[in-house]
């Protein structure tokens, strides 16, 4: 079992906390004037997504988490699992709803996603930073209003709802930033 000492702690390092893989967000060394030094650490649980705070005696070791990311192409869902195919080996894996989170709302199929694997199992899926999707439903914009201030809600073909400028209409394809969930531009054919 690979362990890692507090002296190697840095942002992004993946360690096991209470049996769950976590990613270190912040590591601060704190010392009294004399005596025992500690590391105050903020971590993000990679399964639950929660942020945790932990304190370690400096020099202590913790188990390293066997976590890495790989690119997979989204294939389909059978209602139970979401299936992805590895880009080189063509190996297929199934992610459950917990791993999928709300990433599902950006995917219609064929997108290349970043899959976080823990001991070979998918624990979280990251959509491409930008996706292009068709608007299936939105109110007609007011004529002459091109300011874009405020905007209106639009439902996309995957079910996601984003705010779009008033001049954008149903049937158009738009580019969305999945990290912020914001409209970027119209996509012209």
């Amino acid at each position: 079992m690979a362990t890692v000492s507090t002296s190697e702690f840095r942002g992004g390092l993946k360690v096991m906390i209470d049996g769950n893989p976590c990613s270190i967000i912040e590591n601060e060394i704190v010392k009294p004037g004399k005596g025992q030094a500690f590391n105050r650490v903020k971590l993000k649980s990679l399964v639950a997504g929660k942020v945790l705070e932990r304190t370690f005696k400096s020099g202590e070791s913790v188990e390293r988490a066997d976590v890495h990311e790989e690119e997979y192409q989204y294939s389909y869902s059978d209602g139970d699992l979401f299936y992805f195919m590895h880009q080189e080996s063509f190996e297929q894996i199934g992610a459950d709803a917990a791993a999928m989170g709300d990433t599902e709302k950006w995917l219609k199929g064929q997108e290349i996603c970043l899959v976080t694997l823990w001991d070979g199992n998918p624990i979280s899926i990251t959509a491409p930073n930008f996706v292009e999707l068709e608007i299936t439903e939105t109110d007609p914009g007011l004529r002459g209003d091109t300011s874009g201030g405020g905007g209106k809600p639009a439902t996309l073909e995957t079910g996601a709802v984003v705010r779009v400028p008033l001049f954008v209409s149903e049937g158009e394809v738009i580019k969305v930033d999945t990290r912020s969930g914001e409209y970027v531009s119209r996509v012209k054919d």
């Binding site: 010392k31 009294p32 005596g35 025992q36 500690f38 105050r40 932990r54 304190t55 005696k57």
Partner: peptide
């Protein structure tokens, strides 16, 4: 306090722990 349950310290260690936290 964070990790209080799993922390194994002697009296001075706990004083240091409170000192920094």
């Amino acid at each position: 306090l964070p990790s209080a349950d799993e922390m194994e310290l002697d009296w001075d260690g706990w004083i240091d722990y409170f000192m920094v936290l």
